[in-house]
Amino acid sequence: MSEALNAFEARSAKEIIARRTALELKNGMVVNLGIGLPTLIPQYLPSDIRVTIQSENGIIGLDKVQDDTRHPHITDASGKLAAVASGGAFIDSVTSFGLIRGGHVDVTILGSLQVDQEGSLANWMIPGKKTPGMGGAMDLLAGVRQVIVAMEHTARGIPKILKKCTLPLTAVHCVTKIITEMCVFNVTDTGLVLTELNPQYTIDDVQAVTEAEFAISKNLTEMNIV
């Protein structure tokens, strides 16, 4: 077994996704991370990469809470205790969404229930079953230029990458990249393009659990992970 394959075999789907997505972050970027899997990404950032994490409830420079930074009035967007990084700032909700809608956040990374080949995304409600609400997701998707969906490829085998989303949309034509444990798709004006493949899988494996149509990049490579 090759060394590269070993790197994948040893890791869970979520860890593979987080390690691959970390490579999307470049020095100096302002980033907003959705709840769940995306919050795992910062721990895999290469040590020479510094990013500023924006938290929509009011932090520029979100940091992990340590014992000496614990403060009852510093929380993240899921209501959990958080901290502000050195050089960071606290802002109100109007300013926070002004930054998001004004294009001052470089990239947003979030999970999704469904994403489709037109780059539309559905993650805020399942009619008749679950209506948590959109929170800040609609604003992030409409306002941030780079939207990366980082999610497991299927929901227990049921495709999540579709020709057209069937659930109520969070935003239309917004996704720029999809990263799963199996592969990476770029979302282009003409549809999805497979650019990287986890060596544990074949293109046929991906096709079997992807409802959307996709092209295969002529520069297709093995999936990179940190």
């Binding site: 403060h71 109100d92 909700s93």
Partner: peptide, 12 residues
């Protein structure tokens, strides 16, 4: 004056 992230919607 608000501490930390407590400003959020209060200000507006």
């Amino acid at each position: 004056w608000y501490a930390g992230t407590a400003r959020n919607f209060n200000q507006v």
